[in-house]
């Protein structure tokens, strides 16, 4: 049975997750399974992308100044999609920061350690969350307003065509574990509160936070998935897979940054700089 403090940690993390992330797995599944009165607009070629850009501009890019928006249309499709990805990433990093602050003990850490945990954790967490928005055929975007097909993303020119396919492959394996939002909340907290990130000063404090989250996650999985005793070790393996996925993603972004005319958002530059 779960101790009361573990139960309260499970509940606290689930509540913080639902509060801070505008999209979650339950919501995404409603869109992906067609159980909504407003199905997402399917983006599968250049024409449908242009249509979506007009129809879903704010959801795809937020409040980009209108001047920037018109010059955006003159840029090639790959550069525009890269910008949408960046917008979604910046938004998720912002949400993850708020979620991290809700993890008991995180806000009391030295500020440099908080920065380090986010720098190394946000992309792993982002790709774990992204899986909720994916199925084998594509990716839900623009807060559920759009669905970009996997084939269209694969058809882009290199190196952009290499960007999403590894995330789909990870997502298909990860989604097979059938986690729900209450499981994912603890999994994301465990990703962020990781005691072996480079350059941490108060490792023992972070390890204590990590230990309580991992303990809660193990008990949560036993209670929420009683028929799948191997789920916990399988999920721990996913932490290693995510680290590999981020390393490869960071290399690809550095390559794009060097060889393409695609500027990188300052927040993402901070995260990638001297990462691995």
């Amino acid at each position: 049975s779960q101790k009361p403090d573990t139960k309260s940690l499970v509940r606290q993390m689930h509540e913080a997750y639902l509060k801070h992330f505008h999209m979650n797995k339950a919501k995404a599944r409603v869109f992906l399974t067609g159980k909504t009165s407003t199905p997402p607009f399917v983006i599968h070629d250049m024409d449908t992308l242009q249509h979506a850009e007009r129809k879903l501009h704010t959801q795809l890019l937020g409040n980009v100044a209108s001047g920037d928006a018109s010059s955006l249309q003159e840029r090639e499709v790959e550069a525009r999609l890269f910008l949408f990805c960046q917008y979604a990433s910046v938004e998720t990093v912002t949400e993850l920061t708020e979620f991290a602050k809700a993890v008991p003990g995180f806000a009391a850490l030295d500020l440099n350690d908080q920065v380090t945990l986010l720098k190394y954790g946000v992309y792993e967490a982002l790709f774990a969350l992204l899986a909720s928005c994916m199925n084998k055929d594509g990716l839900l975007v623009a807060r559920g307003g759009g669905f970009i097909t996997r084939e269209f993303l694969k058809s882009l020119r290199k190196p952009f065509s290499d960007m999403m396919e590894p995330k789909f492959q990870f997502a298909m394996r990860f989604n097979a574990l059938e986690l729900d939002d209450s499981d994912l909340a603890l999994f994301v907290a465990a990703i962020i509160c990781c005691g072996d990130r480079p350059g941490l000063s108060d490792v023992s404090h972070i390890e204590r936070i990590q230990e309580s989250i991992i303990h809660a996650l193990r008990l949560q999985l036993l209670s929420n998935h009683p028929d799948n005793a191997l789920l916990f070790p399988k999920l721990l393996q996913k932490l290693a897979d995510l680290r590999q996925l981020v390393t490869e993603h960071a290399e690809l972004v550095q390559e794009i940054n060097k060889t393409e005319d695609a500027s990188l958002h300052p927040l993402l530059q901070e995260i990638y700089r001297d990462m691995y």
Binding site: N63, Y87, L118, D274
Partner: peptide, 21 residues
């Protein structure tokens, strides 16, 4: 580290700061 991660630092200290693209 804080100097090299000004936006992350700002997000950690101030929840209402927007990060525009």
């Amino acid at each position: 580290l804080k100097e090299k991660h000004k936006i992350l630092h700002r997000l950690l200290q101030n929840s209402s700061s927007p990060v525009d693209l």
